[in-house]
Write a protein that binds this DNA or RNA. Structure first.
Lengths: 197, 197
DNA sequence: TCGCGCGTGTACCATGTGGTACATGCCTGC
DNA sequence: GCAGGCATGTACCACATGGTACACGCGCGA
């Protein structure tokens, strides 16, 4: 079945990377023949597109989870979100995300579509949380963008260094920066929020 | 000469990406033959290593520039640094950086060395600025790590969306977050600093 | 039972790859 | 002038790739 093949392919690609991977090598790793991959996905490009599309869907599923729990304080919500998104079980998917991201920056064929919502899709739910805390739409959008950058920047750091303690400390610094300035900024009539999750 | 070839190769690779690039295509783009590339760099892998190493050197040269000007306020220094690092003339190099970064996350052969100092080398100069503003070493290090994540996260955003205004607004949000909380945190005996440049 | 669509595997092809043997030219020191 | 080293180009090789023609077998409806 094509779906099983796709799942297995994503598993392998997430674990081992997609760059310079041939249909033949992938097929032997998956216990089939490259003929099958061509058959089910049309071409090599078709396989990559299917994989990337599927990973995108999984990422967006995470966004949905992200906005679920509103019972926590902003600081605790941030911590919970960070613990979730930075869990080692998600690292393979995130490595794949950054790998394809890096290639898409050069506008390679087949990767252009990946960039489409790569920031925009995340801004809506995150900035919704900001607006709920009283930010203006413009401020909420800028804060969401910043929070997204912090998350991705620290994730990139974590994947590269695997220095869990150091990256966690930076995230705590980020949380502190937001919560400490919150009272002050509230006094000025606006609040920073920036709840990345 | 090998150095000229390397410079030209970096120029092309920065502009067009390194993934799936063959020695032959690169050679014809450079107006030479793939024989020359093999001759000067030993092998294809050798060329990639030379390119990555050279790009690393250029990145580190930027770090040196980063800590030069101490006459500006932290906020203005941040703005100046961001204007510098986010200038479109540097985009090709940064695309290449993220591209190789993404591949290195999978520990591909020849890219492992790139990850070595990818965070650490930047922490020292940035946290030095933090310590100069009165932060404890641990706080300065966490702040530096956060500032680096913000810079890279927003850079990734900028390269993908090319939404200059939106990303600049997020950076202003970051600067505001730091400067506004500075007085408050100073009252608590520590200052956030986070001067990424 | 037959026919047929579909999934699967094998064998093959044209192409592009990295690497290299060999020839040529150019420049420098004697 | 010339001899030797070095850069460069041409031609070739063995190999891996993506794609495809073809064959086989299984399951299902008529």
């Amino acid at each position: 079945m094509a779906q099983e093949l796709l799942d297995a392919a994503i598993g392998y690609v997430a674990a081992n990377g997609l760059t310079d991977l041939s249909l033949r090598r992938l097929a032997t790793e998956l216990g089939t023949s490259h003929r099958m991959l061509s058959h089910h996905f049309g071409s090599k490009e078709g396989l990559w597109v299917a994989i990337i599309h599927e990973v995108e869907q999984r990422q967006l599923a995470l966004v949905d989870q992200m906005v679920l729990d509103r019972s926590l304080s902003p600081a605790d919500a941030m911590r919970a979100w960070w613990q979730h998104i930075s869990h080692p079980s998600l690292w393979p998917n995130e490595r794949l995300f950054f790998e394809v991201y890096g290639q898409a920056l050069h506008r390679r064929a087949g990767t252009a579509a990946l960039l489409d919502g790569i920031v925009e899709w995340w801004l809506a739910p995150i900035s919704a949380a900001g607006k709920a805390q009283g930010l203006s739409p413009a401020d909420a959008r800028a804060s969401a963008r910043l929070a997204l950058a912090v998350t991705r920047g620290l994730l990139l750091d974590l994947l590269a260094t695997e220095d869990r303690a150091g990256v966690d400390a930076a995230m705590e610094r980020w949380i502190a920066l937001n919560t400490r300035s919150q009272g002050q900024m509230a006094r000025k009539g606006s609040r920073p929020s920036v709840r990345p999750g």
